[in-house]
């Protein structure tokens, strides 16, 4: 069978000259498969970007819920009013500065200032401003 057959050669030449135009859809199918492949490898059918997206969502939800639980966190508070900065500041006629001093009782000289007002309870005087006894 390995003998040279002129028919084989002639048929091969004719057959190799055949051309057929594929439908336009064929390239789209090749492209779609390449795009799917470009998505990368999968871990148990899940793509790495899906895992990354899931972690990002979980982290986001955790941060938001954490912020909500911190009542004193100023970032979690909604602004209650907006100060108008364009208009010049005019103090209220009924403004009495004395009221502001009431919350801070005078300390005695040479002692550590003790503040009993609830608004200023957490405040302490920095060491450099304390009077040395």
């Amino acid at each position: 069978m390995a003998e040279f057959d002129p028919f084989d050669q002639a048929f091969r030449r004719r057959a190799n000259s055949l051309r057929r135009t594929p439908s336009p859809r064929a390239w789209n199918r090749v492209e779609n498969r390449l795009d799917r492949r470009r998505g990368g490898t999968t871990i148990l059918g899940i793509r790495p970007w899906m895992i990354a997206a899931l972690l990002l969502i979980v982290a986001g939800v955790t941060v938001v819920s954490e912020m909500n639980t911190r009542a004193n966190n100023p970032l979690a508070k909604r602004a209650e009013s907006v100060e108008e900065l364009s208009s010049p500041y005019t103090p209220d006629e009924t403004f009495t500065p004395v009221e502001y001093y009431k919350a801070i009782p005078d300390g005695k000289a040479g002692r550590i200032l003790i503040v009993r007002g609830s608004e200023y309870r957490d405040l302490t005087v920095a060491p450099q401003y304390r009077q040395q006894s």
Binding site: D5, R13, R14, L18
Partner: peptide, 16 residues
């Protein structure tokens, strides 16, 4: 065996 001249004259449609 088939004569080679037959293949030479084959139309493309006939090959398929």
């Amino acid at each position: 065996s088939i004569p080679a001249r037959a293949a030479d004259r084959l139309a493309e449609a006939d090959i398929l």
